[in-house]
Design a protein around this nucleic acid. Structure first.
Lengths: 140, 140
DNA sequence: CTAAGTGCAAAGGTTTTGCAAGTAG
DNA sequence: CTACTTGCAAAACCTTTGCACTTAG
């Protein structure tokens, strides 16, 4: 996702390209996974004045534009991540809260079974699987 | 889960059986899925004076005791549910927020694949799959 | 220019904490 | 009795909203 395409997507909707929007998008891409707070911190390194309110509003906008998505990972933390390339499923450790990713394709057999049986279309990128990671699980 | 076994589990830890703890546990069992707020409302029907703070503290305690668990369903809402009988996976619609359940066993093939490849043990009851339900998906 | 975007401050909602009063065992 | 529990009030979060100022196009 380059600034050019951000500009285009914005222009299609009559919206404006601003420094803040570029910075927030770059932060999400740079961080991979991040809470609004973390995005704000990263953006602040470049442009100290950017308000957390703007970060929230921009993340919401970028999500509408299809450039980022969010997932609900541990204890209510909303985590944003880029929409790019291969989608993935998050594995969240209940103990150490470490996040791993596995290819979303692994979910396909389950997803099609659920769709057949329930008519429910699973959105793999938004899915979180909770459990115990190798390190924490080994000790329990 | 009877009051008797709640009393036993508490006694093993030197904790006390109180009316509030019985009511909160009963509320979770009666509701199936519930936010702390909903548990509080249900408890209030029997004992009006119970404080929301106590509900939060009690839910946390009951989870430590293994009597209830929680999952993170839509937009950060913490939802508690009983640990009893068949475990299930939650399907949460991103549009109407309706919740369906499917047997946790459906997750088994995926869970064992992930455990083999990553050493990560998936906890099915804590899992939420986001997507579009039959009604909302059909219209999109 | 002028409509869209931002920053600031304040409000809203949820969850946690400190402490004195209450009570189960 | 006495340590565990509760209720209350306040604080701590996280997120949203209203409004005047700023700015991209």
């Amino acid at each position: 996702m380059s600034d050019t395409s951000l500009a285009e997507v914005l222009r299609e909707r009559g919206l404006r390209l601003t420094a803040q929007r570029q910075l927030v998008l770059e932060a999400v891409y740079g961080l991979g996974h991040a809470t609004p707070e973390q995005v704000h911190a990263k953006v602040a390194k470049t442009a100290a004045g950017v308000n957390i309110t703007t970060v929230y509003r921009t993340l919401e906008l970028l999500e509408e534009l299809g450039l980022v998505t969010h997932a609900h990972l541990s204890h209510g933390a909303t985590t944003y991540h880029p929409v790019v390339g291969e989608q993935h499923v998050h594995l969240v450790c209940r103990i150490c809260h470490a996040i791993q990713e596995v290819p979303a394709a692994m979910l396909n057999p389950l997803a099609s079974k659920i769709e057949k049986e329930r008519g429910f279309q699973v959105d793999p990128a938004h899915v979180a699987l909770f459990g115990l990671c190798a390190r924490c699980g080994g000790n329990q």
